[in-house]
Design a binder for these strands. Sequence first.
RNA 1: GGAGAGAUGGCCGAGCGGUUGAAGGCGCACGCUUGGAAAGCGUGUAUAGGGGCAAAACCCCUAUCGAGGGUUCGAAUCCCUCUCUCUCCGCCA
Length: 427
Amino acid sequence: MHDPALLRRDPEEAARRLATRGFQFDVARFRELDERRRQLVRQVEELRAFRKSESEEIARLRRAGADTAEREQKVKAVGKEISRLEDELAVVEEEFRQFLAGIPNFPHESVPVGSGEGDNVEVRRWGQPREFNFTPKPHWELGPQIGILDLERAAKIAGSRFAVYWGAGALLERALIQFMLEVHTREHGYREVLPPFLTNSATLFGTGQLPKFAEDLFRVQDHDLWLIPTAEVPVTNLYREEILDARELPIKLCAYSPCFRSEAGSYGKDIRGIIRQHQFQKVELVKFTLPETSYEELESLTRDAEDILQRLGLPYRTVVLCTGDLGFAAAKTYDIEVWMPGQQAYKEISSCSNFEAFQARRANIRMRRPGGKPEYLHTLNGSGLAVGRTWVAVVENYQQADGSIVIPEALRPYMRAERITPKGELV
RNA sequence: GGAGAGAUGGCCGAGCGGUUGAAGGCGCACGCUUGGAAAGCGUGUAUAGGGGCAAAACCCCUAUCGAGGGUUCGAAUCCCUCUCUCUCCGCCA
C-alpha cells in the first residue's frame, strides 16, 4: 500500500516507477477518486461541526427553559443530509482503498530494469558443482528407489503435488528444520517464534496476499481462515496495529512452518518430484527495521540464508530480481538458487525481500523514536531455507554411485548417522 | 457447544444521554528545587483524516472509549449484531 499523499504529490512520477515493473498506474482514475473523496470529507465535516454546535446550543436553551423544537427540526434535517453524504463517502473510500490496495510496490533504484526472469542479474556464486563419475539421478528417481520418498501413496491419500517421506527421508527433513533453526537462533541472532498455521483475512491483507492473490491460497470452508502460504504472513502480522519502540529495532524473528499453496496456474511447471508442492516446510526469517537500515539488513538476511547452504556444502548462486520479476509487495528481492545435479540446473531455494514500508502501511505497523511521532517501519523476510528443496539438494548432491547418500557433516549431529544406505537405512 | 461476566488513553481506573478527547492515579518528558540523586512542586504527555500551506512549525475542524449498525436535536453512556478475554459446565489432543 502506498502513501496517498505521496502519490498525490507526483502521480506521473509514480506511474513512471510502476511502469518499470509492468504495472500501468491509472493517474486520471487516481486523481478523480482522491478529489471526490476529499470533497466529500470536507462537506461531511462542515455539516458535523454545524450539528455539534447546534446541539450544544439546544442543550443551553433547554436548560434556560426555551422552546427548541424548531432548531431540533433543522438539526434533524442536517442529520439526514450527513448520513446521506456519509453513505456516499463510504462508497468512494472503499473504491479508493481497493484502488490503492491493487497497486504494487515501487522497485528500489538499485533494482535492474527488466521484463522477466531472463533479466535477473547474478550477483555472486558459491561452491563448485561436484564432478560425478556416474550420471546423477534426479531425486524423484533416487528417493523412491531407496525407499525414503513415496509419491504414489501421497497421490492416493491426498492427490498430486503431495509427498510422503519414509524413515531416513522423514528424519532428514526433521534434521534440516532443527539445523536451520539452531543456526539462526544461536548464531545469527534471530528469536524463534511458532505461529498459527491458519490466519484470518485481515492478516493476509497485511502482507499483500489478499485481496489480489486469493486463488493461490487454500481457504477453510465456513470460516474466515486460510492456510498460510508462508510463515511470513503470521509472523509479519504479529505487530499489526502496534507502535514499537524504535530503540528495540531491528527485531529479527525466525519461524518454522508448513506452507500451503494451491499452485493454481502452474500446471505445466515442475511436475516431477517435490520441487513444487501444495504443502512444504520452510524456516522463515523476518525482520522489522528502521527505514534507513533496511537495505543493510536485506544484505545480512540474505547472507544468513546463504550461510545454511555453505554449511551444508551445497553450491549456489544469488541473483537480484529485475523490476519485471519482482513480487507484488517487494521493493527489492534476492533469490538464492541451489545447484541440483540430478536436474542440471540452479533452483530457487530462498527469496529474500525488502518490502520497505509497503507491508507496514497495509498492516499499520509503526515505530516511535524517542520523543518522536509514530513512523512506519520497514519489513523484510526471506526463506532460511525452503526445507523440502534443501532436502532435494542434499539427496541429489550427496548421492553415490550405489544409490546411497552421504549425510553432510553439519547434519550428522542431528541425524546421528553418516550415510543413508541404498536400502534407505541409516548407518 | 451451553451459561454468566467483561472490553475506556502507554498502563491501572472513574464515568447522571448534553463544554468528557474523556476525572484520578501510575508511567514518561521537560522545568524548578538539590553539591548530586530521591522526595516535593509545576508544566506537558493519543491517533488518524481534512483544511489554512508547495512544504515544515503552528493553528482550525472532524472522527475515534473492542467492531459494525440503530434510537436521539445530541451517544463512552440506551438498543441490536458480531469479535475477543475471563469464570463455570460439557467435549477433547
